[in-house]
Amino acid sequence: MTEYLSELISLLLFCIGLYGLAARRNIIKSIISLGVLELAVILFFLSIGGDAPQRPPIAGTVAESAGMVDPLPQALMITAIVIGISVTAVTLTLFITMYHNYGTTNWDKASALNRGERHHD
């Protein structure tokens, strides 16, 4: 059990983010939950197969590459972080637009208002 500790923790973090998305009705809360989900995925990728004593994937002047961690997940996760902030920026802008139109931070109230508008048309 202990050898998979980091993987288990990242799965639990993923579930916490999932709970935030499912249970909270506040739009900003949903965006924050998305951020927690994203960090859980990053942690999962980085912790796969990271049990043995290893060193970072930087050779520097040393010519040998023994004991380096797998560099591929790290390269992918840098991509994930940059895309994460793009998603945050766009979703926050969408939130401000929505707040401007509906005047609420609650998903339910916003969709109720939306349905009401449709009905009047």
């Binding site: 900003i28 970072p56 840098i78 972080i81 940059v82």
Partner: peptide, 25 residues
């Protein structure tokens, strides 16, 4: 977990810049 590149990206982008974005929002 021996990932200094990812740690650096997370600390600048995830921890600082996106927090400022949230607070401004």
């Amino acid at each position: 977990y021996q990932a200094p590149d990812v740690a650096m990206a997370e600390i600048v982008i995830g921890s600082t810049l996106s927090t400022v974005l949230y607070l401004v929002a």
